[in-house]
Every structure is written in structure tokens, then in C-alpha cells.
């Protein structure tokens, strides 16, 4: 009998260790639980998005595309066309794109410097940044609300220190007015896109640092030094060595923060003008707010989800294309 035959014979004779016990059931149970907790709510939202609002009451199950039609061209189409909801989606994208880019672009040099500190200093900074993640969105927005409020925040400081007068003297005040960041008397940050984007960016900044940190700490410093010995100055090193080396984590971090920021609610409601509110705010207003139109809220949620998915897909494609180049 060869060794292989002997092993096969042994295997055949050995009694099965496990019956159809807990070990076999557990994977099925976990799969079922994940399906129930993750997939079913999604399916419910999709199903409700085809539902129908009953005037003066709640809503009923149905299969109508009226909600989708309303989102894209308005409820009165074809007699009248309105792009209000597309505009809200546009604001969602605008805020999320700019805030995520701002967060990543400011976190990048900070994280790069962080990786050059001593191990001890790095650990202290990381603990501090991680602990800032425990602050809720409401808490952070409240802080920024006070900081940017017209009566007690930066505008009051500008006025009391004479900075407002100085801005008027040098002519920059009018520029701020043109940008919607000043009233006739003083600077004004609420409500403004500036305050909205700044707060949203602040919200995700610690995430940006933590997402970029592993890639930047793995950067081979000798590559930058090699570039320097070959005649590359600081900006050339960043452009030709550091950025290509961290292209993927940089792109991934921006995309992740962008998708995360698409759903920002509190910062938008506090800092953005009502005409510049986002789809996330509209979803809440429809589902839990005054409108009580869950099917339309669900439709907006589905479209937001699909848009985010399309962005991820597009990002992936772009990345592949860049890699191929």
C-alpha cells in the first residue's frame, strides 16, 4: 500500500468529527442575520420609494414611478418642469466634493509632517485625533455655530478688534460682500456655503488624517531623498514622487469622505441657506418632518444611494485609467 493509499484509507475510516451541529449552522445564521439587518432595510427603502402618498394621511404600498418623475422633472410634468430636487442633489455633491477635497488637502501636509515626528509625538497626536472622533456631529456643529455666529463669534471679534474697519479701508470688505460673507455693517458667516463647507470639512478632517496616516508612514523616505539628489526641489519631489506613491490612498480617502459627507444633515441645516439645502435634509423633511411623504423621501434616498454608487464606480474607473497611463 502506498503512502497516498494509506492516507486515503485512514481518512475513510476516521469517523466524522462534526455532525450537523452548531459549527454548520453558525455561518447560515450569521448570513441570515446580516441579510436581515443590512439588506432588508435597503430593500424596504427601495420598495417604499415606489409607494404612494395619501393626501391628509400617511402612505400606501404601490408601484408608481411618480416619485422618481417628481425628483427629476417635478410633480407637474409635462405641464411644468422644476429641477428643485436635482438642485438639492447638486448641492449635496458640491458641498461633499469641496469639503472632502479641503479635508484631504489640508490633512495631507499635516499627516506628512506627523509621520516625521518622533514615535512618541506621533502616538500622542494620533490619540488626540482619535479622541476627537468621539465628538458628535451635533456637538461640533454647535461649537462652530457659536464661533461663526454674528453676535458672539468671529464677526463680533472682527468688529471689536477693528478688523472689519480695516477690511473696509483696504477694500476687501466689498469682495466679502460679493461672496455673501458680509452684511452692510460687518462680516457674516451664517448662513453661507463657506461656513457649511468649512464645518463639513472639519467634521471629517480627523478621518482624513487617520486614513492617510498608514500610507504616509509607509512612504520610503529615501525615494524623496533620491529625487532631491537628482535635482528635484520640494514641489517637484511632492509632485513626482510623493503624490504618485500615495495616489491610491489619497483618492480612496477623498472618495470615502465624499460619500460620508453626502449624508451630512446637522451642519447643512445650521449653516446653509434654506434654498441651498441638500438631499439629505430633504429626505429627513419628507420622512420625519412636516411633509410626511415617506415614499418621496425614500425615492430621494435611493437616488442619493445610486449617485454615490455611480461616483464610486466612476472613481474606480478613473483610477484604473490613471494606473494604465
Amino acid at each position: 500500500m502506498t503512502a497516498v493509499e494509506r492516507i486515503e484509507a485512514d481518512t475513510a475510516q476516521r469517523p466524522a468529527r462534526e455532525g450537523p451541529g452548531l459549527r454548520r449552522i453558525l455561518p447560515w445564521f450569521l448570513t441570515g442575520l446580516i441579510t436581515l439587518l443590512c439588506v432588508v432595510p435597503f430593500l424596504l427603502v427601495i420598495a417604499i420609494s415606489f409607494g404612494r402618498k395619501i393626501e391628509g394621511a400617511a402612505w400606501t404600498w404601490d408601484f408608481t414611478l411618480a416619485n422618481y418623475q417628481r425628483f427629476f422633472v417635478g410633480a407637474l410634468w409635462p405641464d411644468d418642469v422644476t429641477f428643485l430636487y436635482l438642485q438639492q442633489l447638486g448641492f449635496s455633491f458640491w458641498y461633499a466634493v469641496i469639503a472632502s477635497l479641503l479635508a484631504v488637502l489640508t490633512a495631507l501636509p499635516f499627516t506628512l509632517l506627523l509621520t516625521r515626528l518622533s514615535r512618541r509625538a506621533q502616538a500622542a497626536w494620533l490619540v488626540f485625533i482619535l479622541s476627537s472622533l468621539s465628538l458628535s456631529e451635533v456637538f461640533i456643529v454647535m461649537g462652530w455655530d457659536i464661533l461663526l455666529s454674528n453676535n458672539s463669534g468671529l464677526p463680533a471679534l472682527f468688529k471689536s478688534t477693528g478688523l472689519t474697519l480695516w477690511l473696509k479701508d483696504v477694500g476687501w470688505f466689498q469682495t466679502l460682500r460679493d461672496w455673501g460673507l458680509a452684511s452692510p455693517r460687518n462680516v457674516k458667516f451664517k448662513t453661507s456655503q463657506f461656513a457649511t463647507i468649512l464645518t463639513m470639512s472639519y467634521l471629517v478632517w480627523p478621518y482624513a488624517v487617520i486614513l492617510l496616516y498608514p500610507a504616509l508612514s509607509r512612504l520610503d523616505r529615501s525615494q524623496s531623498e533620491a529625487a532631491r539628489t537628482m535635482g528635484a526641489g520640494g514641489w517637484t519631489v511632492a509632485r513626482t514622487v510623493i503624490l504618485p506613491a500615495i495616489r491610491l490612498p489619497l483618492f480612496g480617502s477623498t472618495l470615502l469622505l465624499f460619500v460620508f459627507l453626502l449624508g451630512t444633515y446637522v451642519a447643512v441645516t445650521v449653516f446653509a441657506a434654506p434654498a441651498q439645502h441638500t438631499t439629505a435634509v430633504a429626505i429627513y423633511t419628507n420622512i420625519r418632518g412636516a411633509n410626511l411623504n415617506a415614499p418621496f423621501g425614500a425615492t430621494q434616498a435611493v437616488i442619493l444611494l445610486i449617485s454615490a454608487g455611480l461616483c464610486l464606480g466612476l472613481g474606480h474607473r478613473l483610477n484604473k485609467w490613471a494606473e494604465a497611463r
Binding site: 525615494q223 529625487a227 539628489t229 537628482m230 535635482g231
Partner: peptide, 15 residues
Amino acid sequence: HKRKFGMVFQSFALF
């Protein structure tokens, strides 16, 4: 970057 000294690193530091 202004010395024009070529250098080969221990890790080669290729891009």
C-alpha cells in the same frame, strides 16, 4: 538638489 551629486541608496530608492 543643487549639488549635482548622484547617489545610490541602500534600498536603491527606485520609483
